[in-house]
Design a protein around this nucleic acid. Structure first.
Lengths: 343, 343
DNA sequence: AATATTTACGCAAACGTTTGTTTTGTTTGC
DNA sequence: GCAAACAAAACAAACGTTTGCGTAAATATT
């Protein structure tokens, strides 16, 4: 700020013209002569003029800004999603303002209020863990600002969504274990009040059922947060069974990795004794030993899809779209933790 | 947008008062009666009024926004730095708009221009790899908008900086290896046109010198990008020496990890045969086997420090500060890759 | 009771643009 | 040579706030 910024007025004064002429010249309006247009632009460049987009936004009632709410920026999944969002937004001439809810409902609500005052043209959000209902988002509906949720979405909110098919992904993962010969497949499950983790459990069960493998609740361990520590705990639990499972599908990579490390310490070989599939394809899954078979979470694509969808809705003058749901295909990435060689 | 947003005008009409009174009431101005103030606020809440910060920003010539330029959001280091920035900014009532240069100079320049039009009050940036000089940043000086670089900084730009002492960190890392008995310490170095990697090499050399260990160029491997693949290449090079080094300091964690994996495959034990120290404390360093001794890069703290410094400068009316440099303390995190038990 | 002071509010300009309407001056058609 | 048509540029209002100044009524001071 401060400094002495050149405005359109200054240009007008220097050229002995009206400010409207300057404005139109800078926008190549047809009603301004070529010569004048050129001169104005030349002067603007000379004086280092930059348009004041705050003023422009006010007048045009457009900010070309989209607000993004994520639980935490520093989680791999979200930073990749944001990266995708930013990439699409930048190319379409939109700007991205990011807020972290830190999984706090109070903060999430405060952020939605800030976003209203900022006149963002659209909002992309991933709900925080505390968020059970989302009345704080309905004001965006009222204001006609498009809203897109990704990954963690809310059923009872009228908004567009971008998700992966967790059920199908879990099904695929489990099916893969079966295809390499596993008969007794365990599962480390996430918090069952969260839809995505519920879906992963269901997908696991469905795959077993399809192949006539009975579902054994003793082979399912529930965790609250899928942390590294929880993974170790579950692994020890499985070790204490009469017979060790010969396959394991984990609802995320952290638990898979820590379980693997526990197994290795117990002198159990992976994938020979027990094959393991994770979920999310964290960077680390490529580096541990053995490298981890996992489901790619499509974070970057999810961000891109969310941004594209949002921008489409922003620019859809007719506001004909009420909501739209995009389900992304997932990829099973087969690595050494399920590679038993030729079968 | 669209919709029908309630403005201060609407409130004024409903209350049969002037807009200035409304504005003042909403800001608890002393010249407005208590009763009126209360009534105005009540009505505002009823009608769901939200201030239009675009208009406010224009009038007050303040945006309370800081622009952030990072090479990539989805790199762990940067997402953590951003997280720190956002945390501090949020608490101080500032908003954060993020741009990725993707290490492209052209894009970095374009972003600086966008930031000018957006009237941001301050800028935090980490330079892209292509950026050798930074004339595109001097306009911020001219406009009196404070500028803080972090991590990758530029010498020839008049701006504040937040960095870690790479020299000292590398010195500490190397000294640690010496302290556990290493006599022949190798180094995997980064691109020597980047200051931070140069400093790490220098720190390594200085530690050797201090303890009268001759510097042996054969023990130093230079890489262009410190990639996982490069790490493996360097490790093989060291394996081909007549005698294997008994310690290794790597300029980042990726090379350390891939080198460790190469060593393990060659049946070399870590840390008994060769102790390894990385740099940055990537999350993965806690999970690999053995867990990796490394230097914490202080990403989050760096972001916080940058934001605090920037905001201080923004709010320093006198513009008395020209520039300031903060050097953060680093931490050596000792893990199993250098844990030889009692010495 | 007259003046001074305070309280509570209104008026109007300003922030830097954009844009519908008007004005001025030039060209065209006949 | 005069109306009509057009091109080029000016006028002025508007976007939603904030804020210096003015003013009327209410209260305090003598």
């Amino acid at each position: 700020m401060a400094g002495s910024r050149i405005t359109i007025k200054d240009l007008a004064a220097r050229m002995n013209m009206s400010i409207s002429t300057i404005s139109r010249a800078l926008h190549d309006h047809s009603s301004i002569g070529e010569k004048t247009t050129a001169e104005v632009k030349k002067l603007a460049k000379e004086l280092g003029y930059f348009p004041n987009s705050v003023a422009s936004n006010l007048r045009r009632n457009k900010t070309h800004t989209i607000g993004v709410i994520v639980p935490r920026i520093d989680i791999h999944f979200h930073s990749h999603a944001i990266s995708g969002i930013e990439e699409v937004a930048y190319k379409s001439g939109y700007y991205v303002t990011i807020f972290q809810s830190r999984d706090l409902l109070e903060r999430e609500i405060a952020i939605t209020e800030i976003l209203q005052t900022k006149m963002v043209e659209g909002v992309i959000a991933c709900l925080g863990l505390e968020t059970k209902e989302c009345t704080h988002f309905i004001k965006f509906n009222e204001l006609n600002v498009p809203l897109v949720f990704y990954d963690r979405v809310s059923k009872d909110c009228n908004a567009s969504k971008v998700i992966i098919d967790d059920f199908e992904a879990a099904f695929k993962a489990t099916e893969h274990l079966i295809s390499i010969g596993c008969k007794k497949i365990s599962h480390i499950a996430g918090c069952q009040t969260t839809d995505i983790f519920k879906a992963r459990l269901e997908g696991y069960k469905a795959a077993l059922t399809k192949y006539n493998i009975p579902i054994d609740e003793k082979l399912i361990e529930y965790t609250s947060d899928l942390s590294y520590e929880e993974g170790a705990r579950c692994a020890k639990k499985f070790l204490s069974l009469e017979t060790l499972p010969d396959g394991m599908f984990c609802a995320n990579d952290y638990t898979a990795i820590s379980a693997i490390q526990v197994f290795k310490k117990a002198n159990i070989h992976i994938p020979q004794d027990i094959a393991v599939v994770g979920f999310s394809n964290y960077p680390i899954s490529r580096f541990i030993e053995p490298t981890l078979t996992t489901i790619d979470d499509r974070a970057f694509e999810m961000g891109k899809a969310a941004a594209k969808l949002l921008i489409r809705q922003i620019e859809d003058k007719d506001h004909i779209i009420s909501s739209e749901t995009i389900v992304l295909k997932t990829d099973l990435i087969v690595r050494d933790s399920t590679n038993r060689g030729i079968i």
